[in-house]
């Protein structure tokens, strides 16, 4: 499924996230980098929402390393 067709999280505001989180990380985003950053933040939000909608049991742990 292409990300353009996924829905972002309800009420998600990429500009507000950028303006709040970037200073907290000591990240100064130049005006010329802002439109691209917002575009990709919106794309990530759509992807993330699709994953967040999936119900997982409480005991399902993260699994960054795999064993057969």
């Amino acid at each position: 499924m292409t990300p353009e067709f996924l829905a972002p999280p309800p009420g998600f505001d990429a500009q507000a996230v950028l303006d709040t989180v970037a200073p907290a990380l000591g990240l100064s985003i130049a005006p010329e980098h802002r439109p691209g950053t917002l575009l990709f933040l919106d794309l990530s939000a759509r992807m993330a929402q699709f994953v967040m909608e999936f119900e997982l049991a409480d005991d399902l742990e993260p699994a960054p390393v795999f064993r057969p």
Binding site: I29, A48, V51, L60, E61, P62
Partner: peptide, 29 residues
């Protein structure tokens, strides 16, 4: 430029998105 803006966006991502993706990864595996 094609890499930078995506990385800047990733730096702003809420931790819950990442952790859900890692837990989903376990389920999917």
């Amino acid at each position: 430029p094609d890499v930078r803006d995506r990385l800047l966006a990733g730096a702003l991502m809420p931790a819950n998105w990442y952790l859900q993706a890692q837990r989903f990864r376990h389920w999917y595996h």
